[in-house]
Design a protein around this nucleic acid. Sequence first.
DNA 1: TCATTTTACGTAGTTAACTACATATTTATT
DNA 2: AATAAATATGTAGTTAACTACGTAAAATGA
Lengths: 162, 162
Amino acid sequence: MKYDFINELGYLALATRLKRISEAMVHSGRHMYKSLGMDIEPNWFLIFKLLMKYDQLSVTEMANKLHFSHPSVITMVNKMELNGYLHSIQDKVDTRKRLFSLSDRAIKEIPEFEKIWEAGTIGVQKLFAYDNHFLDLLESLEIQLSQSDFMQRTLNELKKDE
Amino acid sequence: MKYDFINELGYLALATRLKRISEAMVHSGRHMYKSLGMDIEPNWFLIFKLLMKYDQLSVTEMANKLHFSHPSVITMVNKMELNGYLHSIQDKVDTRKRLFSLSDRAIKEIPEFEKIWEAGTIGVQKLFAYDNHFLDLLESLEIQLSQSDFMQRTLNELKKDE
DNA sequence: TCATTTTACGTAGTTAACTACATATTTATT
DNA sequence: AATAAATATGTAGTTAACTACGTAAAATGA
């Protein structure tokens, strides 16, 4: 693995590698849920956790809190509602809004899900045994890239060559 | 950003965040190429770099070296060939194989691409100013997850609770 | 109060990775 | 030499994020 071609590319292949690691984890998570006979999808924990904290939220509120686009949220919550995990009502004050909350089924099953999520968290944490500031590093990346994105940074370096 | 909901989720949301960072970079890269009037796609550098090193490779050889599925490679090289950057011939010894190499256009334009790739690499590197072992950490993650994936690690932690 | 702007949601289509399956060819086995 | 197994490529369909655009409702302002 050490003298792998991808390694030779260094930071140039960073995005490729981040994506691949993420995909491997999501894929494995999907497999896990299926093996355990649970009909939930890997990214639904985001919505479950949100509604556990905030009780009732609109699509846009969820999208903002998760930094997702609203169509992504719509796709997730529609599926979750179809599966009986969410309940939605129209906001009486602002009729454009759909307010989502956890269904009885969700409230009943979440304690089981939490066991998985906790185990998963610990398992992932252990990957970083000797390096426990990885999440801070990620946050720093997120902040830096939101201030100046990959294109700006690259063009900035290009300018220096002239 | 610090007291963001996603941050509260800790390692549970690791895959989500890795994917988002990767997507932001790729998206910005696509935008950059378009702005510069270059008709190449963000992931093509993988194939260009491979063929610069190895001259001539089949689909499967490329897929193995990049740790990509072969259909992903096919999609990339077909587009690149359509755009005149690659040239393919059938292997005379094993007629199942299609051997790809760089076209004259590619050889002519790659020096320009290299300038961008180098600038991009430096720009990304600078994101890690105080932390220069990030790539080693990524490699450690890749190796660990290939030995025991997210599901196995999670189920392993679950067992400990019983 | 009427027109404009902004906001919220929804739909359609894109992207880049993937798995699963199909087909053709080569290699191995008996 | 014939059959079986493995390999190489290709195709179809899935996934989960995205942007772009459309529509309806609410908020703003002249």
